[in-house]
Amino acid sequence: MAKINGNEIRPGNVLEHNGGLWVAVKVGHVKPGKGGAFAQVEMKNLRNGSKLNERFRSADKVERVRLEQKDQQFLYETDGMLVFMDSETFEQVEIPADILGDRRPFLQDGMTIQLEYYESEALNASLPERVTCQIVETEPVVKGQTAANSFKPAVLDNGVRVMVPPFVAQDESIVVSTETMEYVERA
């Protein structure tokens, strides 16, 4: 593992701090009128999700951790655990379903996602940026309604509610962003 100075911390960096693994969420560099400059870092624990605000001076050394990234294929869910298969070794791995948080409904059978490992422990999972879903319920198109900034609610095949433009009809496939959970385009 590499040691970095406190002023080199960037958002997304994974740090070993106080015996835990933390990801830097926000980093602000502060130069007070009196005293030395420091980095104000908001961190989130990768294991339990707790948050922490910490100050690091440029002279402070912090342990930066590199997570190993592996592409894994989703197989099925059982008892709150998601079962993935390594694409290269065909080894199966079980991970708690809450690792995906509110993005869990976008996980589809056979989907390949990227899991981040520290040693042999899976800490993070990232879905593809965009997922194609089908609309199962929405209001019918109202003739003459302009498309300018008017959206209507729709329910997707995975149960998630999104706002869609008025021209999108029921049983159509749309592309949804997994980051913002918003409509992107027609599929």
Rank of each mutant, 00 (worst) to 15 (best):
K143I: 12
P96D: 13
R55F: 11
Q170Y: 08
S87I: 15
E77K: 10
I95C: 08
E172T: 04
G19H: 00
G101K: 08
D102L: 15
E63Y: 08
G159L: 04
K51I: 09
R55I: 10
R57S: 11
T138D: 01
I174N: 10
E94H: 06
E8C: 04
N48R: 01
K70A: 02
M85V: 15
V23R: 04
E137I: 03
S177N: 13
A59Q: 14
M1N: 06
Q134T: 14
E185S: 07
R104G: 00
E179G: 11
K61P: 08
V83S: 01
C133E: 13
F84P: 02
Q72C: 12
R103A: 15
K34F: 13
T146F: 13
L100D: 06
E179V: 14
P128Y: 00
G144K: 03
D109H: 13
S87Q: 14
R66K: 05
E42A: 09
R130E: 15
L46R: 01
T78H: 15
M43R: 00
I113T: 09
G49S: 00
T138E: 05
A154I: 01
L107E: 13
K152L: 10
P140N: 07
H17M: 02
G28L: 01
E139S: 14
D86A: 02
R66E: 15
L100S: 08
K143H: 12
E88R: 06
I4C: 04
S126A: 14
Y117W: 14
K31D: 07
E8T: 06
A2I: 14
L67F: 07
F106S: 10
F151W: 00
K61T: 01
Q114A: 08
N13Y: 15
A122R: 02
G80D: 08
D71Y: 12
V25K: 09
S58R: 10
D71I: 07
T112F: 03
R47V: 09
D60I: 11
L75I: 15
V131C: 02
L46V: 11
D109P: 12
V41P: 15
L100A: 10
V168Q: 04
M1G: 12
V164A: 05
R186A: 12
R55C: 11
R57G: 10
A154V: 06
Q170D: 13
T78K: 15
M181S: 04
S87W: 09
F84H: 05
E179T: 14
V41S: 14
E119Y: 11
T180D: 12
P11C: 00
H17L: 13
G110N: 09
A169D: 14
P32F: 02
S50Q: 11
T132M: 03
Y117P: 05
K152D: 07
G101W: 06
I95H: 00
S50R: 06
N124V: 01
F106C: 06
A147P: 00
F151D: 01
I4K: 09
K34D: 07
A147H: 06
M181Q: 05
S173W: 04
A169G: 02
F151Y: 11
Q108A: 12
